[in-house]
């Protein structure tokens, strides 16, 4: 059964015809062409699909598209301002917090949610918060550093000393 769903995605109003069983992640990826949100599992465990719905982090594989009716969805494509990366994205880059990049959109969306609720997290809190996001490449070491740096910059503080001393090219 087909229905129309209307919602705001990355600040833009959109409507699409979906089936009752269509998941939000399918709507985003397959109908709206927003392929930055990824699917890494079929048991709601990996977090590759995390987006924000009305400001809250949600695994978009667990929500039906129709449940997003009238709501505001932010995906990874909407995080940067024009070509300027968000401080959290910048921190991921500074700290080499991504390798293959597959988990990265979900990680960034989760990190933003964490910092919204806890602007000054400890390393332990970051690790515990990331419980729902799997990364197979980085061992999380640099993701944790990136989130601590991103949080600091978002608080308006100078970023902590970068362990790699990463150089702009």
């Amino acid at each position: 059964m087909q229905k129309t769903v209307s919602l705001t995605v990355n600040g833009r109003p959109v409507s699409a015809t979906v089936e009752g069983r269509t998941l939000l992640v399918q709507l985003l990826r397959e109908q709206l062409g927003l392929t930055g949100t990824h699917v890494g599992c079929d048991t709601s465990q990996c977090g590759a699909c995390v987006v924000h719905v009305d400001g809250e982090a949600v695994k978009s594989c667990t929500l039906l598209a129709l449940q997003a009716e009238g709501r505001s969805v932010l995906t990874i494509e909407g995080v940067a301002t024009g070509d300027t990366l968000h401080p959290m994205q910048e921190a991921f880059r500074n700290n080499h917090a991504l390798q293959c990049g597959f988990c990265t959109p979900g990680m960034v969306m989760s990190a933003l949610d964490l910092v919204k609720n806890n602007p000054n997290p400890t390393e332990r809190e970051v690790r515990e918060y990331l419980e729902g996001n799997l990364c197979r490449c980085t061992g999380y070491h640099t993701i944790v550093l990136a989130i601590l740096e991103g949080a600091a910059v978002m608080r308006g503080e100078a970023p902590p000393a970068n362990v790699h001393g990463a150089a702009a090219e």
């Binding site: 790699h164 150089a167 090219e169």
Partner: peptide, 15 residues
Amino acid sequence: PVRRREDYRFLTGQG
């Protein structure tokens, strides 16, 4: 430790 050239596309969902 040059920052990665591939990161921009992955961080913005453009991989």
